[in-house]
Design a protein around this nucleic acid. Sequence first.
DNA 1: GTGGTCTAGACCACC
DNA 2: GTGGTCTAGACCACT
Lengths: 120, 120, 120, 120
Amino acid sequence: MSLILDTTSTTPPYEQLRDQLRLQIVGGTLPPGSRLPAIRQLAADLGIAPGTVARAYAELEQEALVLSRRAKGTVVADTSPNAGTALLSQLAATFARQAEQLGVSADEAVRAFRRAYQGP
Amino acid sequence: MSLILDTTSTTPPYEQLRDQLRLQIVGGTLPPGSRLPAIRQLAADLGIAPGTVARAYAELEQEALVLSRRAKGTVVADTSPNAGTALLSQLAATFARQAEQLGVSADEAVRAFRRAYQGP
Amino acid sequence: MSLILDTTSTTPPYEQLRDQLRLQIVGGTLPPGSRLPAIRQLAADLGIAPGTVARAYAELEQEALVLSRRAKGTVVADTSPNAGTALLSQLAATFARQAEQLGVSADEAVRAFRRAYQGP
Amino acid sequence: MSLILDTTSTTPPYEQLRDQLRLQIVGGTLPPGSRLPAIRQLAADLGIAPGTVARAYAELEQEALVLSRRAKGTVVADTSPNAGTALLSQLAATFARQAEQLGVSADEAVRAFRRAYQGP
DNA sequence: GTGGTCTAGACCACC
DNA sequence: GTGGTCTAGACCACT
């Protein structure tokens, strides 16, 4: 479980948490049926208040990405297969807007991306 | 001057403003020597308080991207020519990290990017 | 905590506050880990607006002399041991420039200083 | 005439000007009877507005350090011989207060001063 | 008219 | 209760 918080950012911790979990769920790193860490456990690990973790989980539940069952914890829901594609499109669009504002060509942006990419 | 605020975002308006101006400055859309809108003018246009615009300008001045002089307005400074490349690398890295967490291949991410890109 | 504002000076209050706190931090009067007064508390004590204190704290955070954490307050950071020496050199240089412009010898300036010094 | 303005400082230009002129008058670099530069001339040299220079001169006149005579310009007045000593004491006191807040001994402060002093 | 600062009070996120 | 941000309006120094 790689979850990292930047406490100096103005992005609230619950959003950082929610966004990272969403990526891992939709991308399959956290497959349907797997359990998220218990709220108190994760809060302790990250050194934040339980309410903050709870809020991140609640927002994911509202997006139907997880299910919270009393006393059973929070488990990853079955996700629609195109959720990943939709999220990727959205993230790509953000980068595209930035490149456009920078006045950078598509090819330049792609080269910068390939230089940065180290993944699978 | 295309400057848009997303009032639903949790990113504070002064950061949205600062980030967009930074892109346009290092990208050359706002060339060295050009004047930014007067604080009160831009505040009125965007429907926000002058202090919010002032803060965005102040942070850009701290990054040495602009110079603010009393009674003379705020002017784009001479920027190091590789500032644009550095910023692009950083933005590309953010997108790359997201793609990696999503478990998406570089080629898939590039395809999504090219679909979203509509620029020059 | 000795913090005094000169309301007749043209030096803005947030700078006076910042400068005094900086001296006490790098000098060790406020040791690493110690808490600064809460923003609203100090503002009330000094009879100024909270935003003014907040700005002083924000600038110190930017200099990495303090750390501000939501709901945890503002705490003195670990500072490089030569920060004090560097600051002393800078203040001594200011006095030296003034003495030079006055056309005063080093010995005269030192005598005046020793007469004024009442410290530890 | 060495007069330098720091346009980034929050100290208003008219105060910077006034303070530097005061040092040079009281210290004898500008002897009694000598003429200050014409207001418009100095303003042009420094790249500031004439009103700013006029204000600095006006404050010096109020301190009886200069005399403005219509059409004859501004000339340095006869100054009391202990003006220099008084000003030196005041500047020394400022440095002493800073050293004290820094928790630095008189000897340390003096060493730092002698290192910085390069004057006559 | 321009930026810089301050006020007084508000809401938010967090603990 | 704590810091972070925003508002709406004010005064100042400067051109």
